[in-house]
Amino acid sequence: MRAARYHGPGDIRIDEVDRPEVTDPEDALVRVTHTAICGSDLWFYRGQQDRDVPSGVGHEPMGIVEEVGEDVVSLESGDRVLAPFAISCGECEFCRKGLHTSCSNASSWGGENGGGQGEYVKCPTADGTLVKVPDRHADDPETLKSLLPLTDVMCTGHHAAVNAGVEAGSTVAVVGDGAVGLCGVLAAKRLGAERIVAMGHHENRLDIAEEFGATDRVTERGEAAVERVHELTNGGVNHVVEAVGMESSMNMAFDVARPGGTVGYVGVPAGIEEAEFLGTAFGENIALKGGVAPVREYIEELMADVLQGTLDPSPVFTKTVDLDGVPEGYAAMDEREAVKVFVDLT
């Protein structure tokens, strides 16, 4: 089969590799029809994260089940499935309480499983991981494009909004205008937020934020951005979505929060050394809640909204490529020419 693989910083290639095989009774083999390139993929692409050379890449596959192990009970060949970015068993202590990303039997899409940006993936513990798309929606291209962000960024933005305590009537600030931040805006709107301040530096991305429900945009940087949010909201907000993970963005998230507020964070931590925000958190009794999103916990709830037409995160995809175009897609995201890249293997 053909799959995208990492060969070093800035070097993604489409290679011929062995197709994964069903070797365990709980396995499923999935033919990938759609996948995506994630902002978190840029960490290794930019040489900021260690990774084996060469190694399969990608973690957001959608496709058709080709084969299942004898113990798989919820799926059969021909089913259309979504694959959350984390593989989970669905049965351990952590899966049972909705924390699938801490699964005691966790696995990833790399290695012998094929990587998520290739023609096939193998899913261990398929019953606990894969989510079936209802047959009546399984072949509609627009619906599938709207569903694909649920494998990661839409559920991640939702996780941040939930942990920030967003509810009907809330005023929310969203720090970051990447795909996760934009989905955080959409999630806050879905949860009933009345006012949503989108904070970022790219007008085209903030246009998407407004499409998703943002009522205000803040493009200033540093202290000027904090002052602008305080001016717009009469002293800050009770609910903050942090979707970047840098020291500066964490500091900003706490600086725009009102005393007693909550920061829901899902930005992967990077370069945080002094953690100045902890002093603000302590002094102002601001809570910090979040972490890596347990997509499997949220995916069915959000899929129901997509299928009934009340939720559509697909505008985060601003570039589409085929499998051969994946290296080009990485470059486009690295150069901020694309928010998120949709990969169509059909």
Rank of each mutant, 00 (worst) to 15 (best):
L147G: 02
C103G: 11
A83F: 00
S74E: 07
S77Y: 03
R136I: 14
S102P: 01
G116M: 03
K122V: 02
W109I: 07
V81H: 06
H137Y: 15
C89F: 10
T101M: 04
C92D: 11
P141R: 08
P124W: 07
S107C: 12
H137R: 06
S104K: 14
D79C: 08
D135L: 11
S77N: 08
I87W: 11
G110H: 09
H100G: 14
E76V: 13
A138L: 07
A138E: 07
S88H: 15
C103A: 12
P141Q: 06
W109P: 01
N113G: 08
G111P: 04
E91H: 10
D79Y: 04
E70Y: 06
F94H: 09
H100K: 06
N113C: 09
E142P: 00
S102T: 14
S102C: 15
G115S: 07
V72R: 02
F94L: 10
F94N: 11
P134Q: 13
D140N: 12
A86R: 09
K122I: 05
G116K: 01
A83N: 01
P149Y: 01
K132P: 06
C92I: 09
P134L: 09
K97S: 14
P84D: 02
H100E: 15
D127W: 00
V72S: 03
S108Q: 10
G114W: 01
S107N: 14
D127F: 01
K97D: 11
S108N: 14
E76W: 08
T101I: 07
A83M: 05
T151W: 00
K97P: 01
D139V: 13
V131E: 05
C123N: 11
Q117A: 08
A106V: 14
D71S: 13
D135H: 12
